[in-house]
């Protein structure tokens, strides 16, 4: 699924990385704890979260995540958007909740990313 399709399905607004909307994501991960996100190591993962701060973008950077969806209509601050732009990470915001956003993407074929267990 491309990031453009994700945007369409979630009726989302793009705040950074308009030029990367053709990038593909093959898995998704939803959480509000970045410590949890850091246990996922799959390629081309989309991150959905209600945690709106620069650490979310830093975490995405570490994980090579190309797209982050902020849910529940939360709007990130300037620092967060700036960091995303510097690192070529797409940020979009949707009014849907984390549960509904995940459900929409899942039912359209975007599977969950697996995590590594100890």
């Amino acid at each position: 699924m491309t990031l453009e399709e994700v945007r369409h399905l979630l009726d989302a607004e793009v705040l950074s990385g308009h030029e990367y909307m053709k990038k593909e994501v093959s898995k998704a991960f939803s959480c509000d704890l970045m410590s949890d996100a850091l246990t996922s190591v799959e390629d081309r993962t989309l991150l959905l979260t209600g945690l709106v701060n620069p650490h979310t973008v830093r975490t995405a950077e570490m994980l090579d995540i190309s797209g982050v969806v902020f849910v529940r209509g939360k709007v990130p601050d300037e620092d967060t958007i700036k960091l995303a732009k510097e690192n070529g990470i797409v940020i979009m915001i949707t009014k849907y909740t984390l549960y509904v956003s995940s459900g929409i993407l899942y039912s359209n074929g975007l599977e969950g990313a697996s995590i590594l267990h100890n």
């Binding site: 970045m34 410590s35 949890d36 850091l38 246990t39 701060n53 100890n118």
Partner: peptide, 15 residues
Amino acid sequence: ELGFGAGMGLPNIKR
């Protein structure tokens, strides 16, 4: 509140 402190840090480093 910043999204950390879940007690996963050290185990995750080791992994």
